[in-house]
């Protein structure tokens, strides 16, 4: 009976920023999939809800050197310092309305438990957590199109991306019926992954070497020698994480050929980037 929790997964994604066109399909599919409410007037982005948000970054250079990159940002599902599950938001929630699922690596959010103190929002540097400032108001008839697999939220609670956890629940349910132990890689994919027309998002189990995401990211289980709080750093020199140096240990990785994009993923003091950027290339060689 204990088999249920025997195998630990670590679901994560890698987003190829060079493929992303900024079309916004991921945002739209996410909102539709997860019953995300919207406002009549969406012009103020600071109080509207977009679990998956696409940021626009530029290299700050004048024409003709101007380059633009679009960066989709779901909840980063941080595993926290040292990867022990104390993500910035989970450890601060006073009412245990969010936890770190050690069996999946997914950071949950339970709307009926949350009482809206918003401490988690303050603690999250990615702005991945959103508050329901209003009760959701659906246009006439749209309620019938809400997904029954995702519970709707009420005003006054925090919500965020769940890596479409309900899809995992449903995939597992099917596996149970067919008396299988495990689900296939393609049985559990997030809405944004499946919606991306460019195929920029790859989702899977970072603990499973067969999964595409693991093949791209090649996560290093050893702590970063420069910062013991950081684990799961990618051994692919083209892959980086957002604000990796803070030790949040996100499970959303980004991939880009362009150096300025990789640099934009974190903060570096003057001259630091030059010493850090090739770090992984070096360790890879020394590891053989």
């Amino acid at each position: 009976m204990k088999q249920e929790n025997k195998k630990e997964h670590k679901f994560g994604m890698v987003i190829d920023l060079d493929k992303c066109t900024g079309c916004g399909s991921c945002m739209v599919s996410c909102m539709a999939e997860n019953n995300v409410p919207f406002k009549e007037d969406e012009s103020n982005k600071k109080d509207s809800i977009t679990w998956m948000r696409v940021y626009k970054l530029t290299n700050g250079k004048d024409f003709p050197e101007t380059e633009v990159v679009y960066m989709p940002r779901p909840c980063q599902h941080c595993s926290g310092k040292g990867g022990h599950g104390h993500s910035p938001c989970v450890s601060v929630c006073p009412a245990t309305a969010t936890d770190y699922g050690k069996d999946t690596g997914i950071v949950s959010q339970i709307y009926t438990r949350c009482f809206g103190c918003r401490y988690c929002m303050g603690a999250c540097p990615y702005h991945a957590r959103y508050f329901n400032w209003w009760d959701p108001k659906w246009p006439e008839g749209m309620e019938n199109y809400l997904s029954p697999n995702v519970s709707p939220r009420m005003r006054g609670v925090v919500e965020k991306c769940s890596f479409c956890y309900h899809r995992y629940q449903l995939a597992r349910e099917k596996a149970y019926l067919e008396e299988r132990e495990e689900i296939e890689e393609m049985e559990y994919q997030t809405a944004c992954t499946t919606a991306c027309p460019a195929g920029a998002i790859v989702f899977g189990d970072l603990n499973n070497p067969e999964h595409e995401v693991t093949k791209i990211v090649k996560p290093d289980d050893h702590p970063d020698p420069r910062n013991p709080d950081v684990v799961g750093k990618s051994r692919n020199p083209k892959v980086f994480r957002l604000l990796e140096r803070l030790g949040t240990n996100t499970k959303v990785y980004y991939l880009s050929e362009r150096e300025w994009v990789r640099k934009a993923g974190d903060n570096y003091t003057e001259g630091e980037w030059e010493t850090i950027k090739n770090h992984h290339g070096k360790t890879q060689i020394s590891h053989g």
């Binding site: 929630c93 245990t96 309305a97 438990r113 949350c114 009482f115 809206g116 006054g156």
Partner: peptide, 26 residues
Amino acid sequence: IDVGQPLRSWFIFWHANVHSMLTEVA
């Protein structure tokens, strides 16, 4: 008045997460 769901305020006591500084505050 600051919490989004005032009627659930008691959760901070009942469902306390002892690791949160806010629990200790409450």
